[in-house]
Write a protein that binds this DNA or RNA. Sequence first.
DNA 1: AAATAGCACTCGTCACAGTTGAGTGCTAAC
DNA 2: GTTAGCACTCAACTGTGACGAGTGCTATTT
Lengths: 343, 343
Amino acid sequence: MDIELSARSRQILEAIVEDYIATAEPVGSSAVARRHAMTLSSATVRNVMANLEDMGLLTSPHTSAGRIPTEKAYRMYVDSLVALRQVSRDEKRQIISHCRQAGIGLSGILKETSRTLSQLSNYMGIVVAPSFTADMFRHIEFIRLGQRKILAILVSSKGALQNRLIDTDDDYASEELVRMGNYLNDRMQGLTITQVREQILHEMASEKAQYDHLLSRALKISEQAVRVEGDEIFVEGQARILDQPEFSDAGRMKEIYEAFEQKGLLVQLLSRCMKADGVQIYIGSETSLSQSAGISLITSRFVTSSNTVGMLGVIGPTRMGYSSVIPIVDYTARMVSKLLSES
Amino acid sequence: MDIELSARSRQILEAIVEDYIATAEPVGSSAVARRHAMTLSSATVRNVMANLEDMGLLTSPHTSAGRIPTEKAYRMYVDSLVALRQVSRDEKRQIISHCRQAGIGLSGILKETSRTLSQLSNYMGIVVAPSFTADMFRHIEFIRLGQRKILAILVSSKGALQNRLIDTDDDYASEELVRMGNYLNDRMQGLTITQVREQILHEMASEKAQYDHLLSRALKISEQAVRVEGDEIFVEGQARILDQPEFSDAGRMKEIYEAFEQKGLLVQLLSRCMKADGVQIYIGSETSLSQSAGISLITSRFVTSSNTVGMLGVIGPTRMGYSSVIPIVDYTARMVSKLLSES
DNA sequence: AAATAGCACTCGTCACAGTTGAGTGCTAAC
DNA sequence: GTTAGCACTCAACTGTGACGAGTGCTATTT
């Protein structure tokens, strides 16, 4: 069906999409004709546009306005029409330098990346940290903070940390905690954090633990320590949504902001994106975010040295500058992967 | 000057402020008269209102509209007119239960508090974590993550954590790191983190370190570990700003969001609030936030067991529901203080 | 003297009508 | 197949008049 399009139709569709992206206003036949340096008249363009409308690629808000692209048109544009811009030298420099400057652990880097994405794209930047659970266990440490209060620090091979305060029923001596730490550190090397948890649960159920009270309560605490919270997620540049004319009325924006405040929704959305490789593009209703909102999402995976996978990308209006944002997301994902694999 | 107001004038001013807070629309003389259950005619009210306008307490957007309170009027309202509502049983329940449920360390509690403030007030909730630097030093731990890569974990007496990745010039053995940790843990008890840093800098400069290479490089690493990042700050419920009719146009909102994205500004603003005790109220330009924005701020300090001080509060339009928000902020600050002092 | 009723006046808002102009669809000519 | 021409549509803008909420002033009542 898509292939039926003649070369000319495709050119005109491309012109319309790009014009609309640039201006956010319905584009008329004469505007397209002008753009084509007068090799076509507006009347001819009109005929073609009528065809495209029949095919469901364009709609007009009302009879006497220009046409605007449908989601289908964006899809086609992204799939086969768009001419991707190169990432400029300056953009590359920004991406790299921002990544490096924030050398304060994984969180810092990712937060900064999110901000960079937002700045370069002028839309909203978003980064989901690699899931901790798939990471390798490196180290656990128990610190006595007071009577019946223990701080557990879990370090993954990637350097990601999780701190947890644990209230216990009994009081533990510092030495006992050190022993517990050593026990786990010795025995759990080479496992992922999920596996460590499973292992602990398994041992808790084992014969030995049933009869060894000391071991039993040590395991109970350890189990609490390796419970993992929800994925970390970084969203930056929310204010940029306000730049977009289509979101200038308060009602729609409120919808969007509310959707994003419950980050759970985003996580769900993004975990889908993790599965496939390369840059993924979701247009409008494909995002399955608040339907009416006209939101698009461009994402890509990044990987760490331990082969855990995170996700980064840009959220903007359907009418997004795909030609420049796609390469930026792609390049950023590569850079972050590289940076995280070094260590 | 303020005291010159007759009881009746004060009543009328109060009525106007409250009416305007409720409706966000200029209030006219007859509305006030109606409110007073017909003990006064609208004409009388008009005379009084004309006086109040002369005194700079009211303005009218144009001749034939009602009057709206000036900042000065809000100030007076807050200082001497407002009848504070009690915090309802249900609100108390929410505050307490939210605080407790998020038992995952200081950050978790504060973030949840911020969200609660936002929910109860219907404005924006904001919490600034107690400055780490004033906290007592409790424990430091160095963990070897790889060649020339060390993870430093700094624990304050309050249970607040700071993780820091340190790249070193030389490689350190695990045992050496343990010794370094012990050295600091033994000698720095009872000092604040700021003092610890000063102490380390002092020792670095001392005679002994000059000639003891091992000590010198240990101190160098330690110094990096106790450098402290900016204060943590939690902002929740930004979307609620959109509920306010006065911010329904995109231009103003953009201003506000941008102001808040650079949290630095907020920190600066809020650190001022830390100095005084009790609930602090900043109205409009008193906030010295983007002048024109018509923003008010209600804050209160909270303290921890180690006597460090944090700040929590609510940001909303000048036309804010002071009578209910003030008690909420006050109560929440008390509860958080109590909760944090228990441990 | 304070409170009130009455009245003229102001000015924003709303609804309605007329104008404009960008853009379309169709048809006939090239 | 392409183009020129023309009638038609419809949102956006403009101007106008009615409306009404609200004011300020003045004369009157209490």
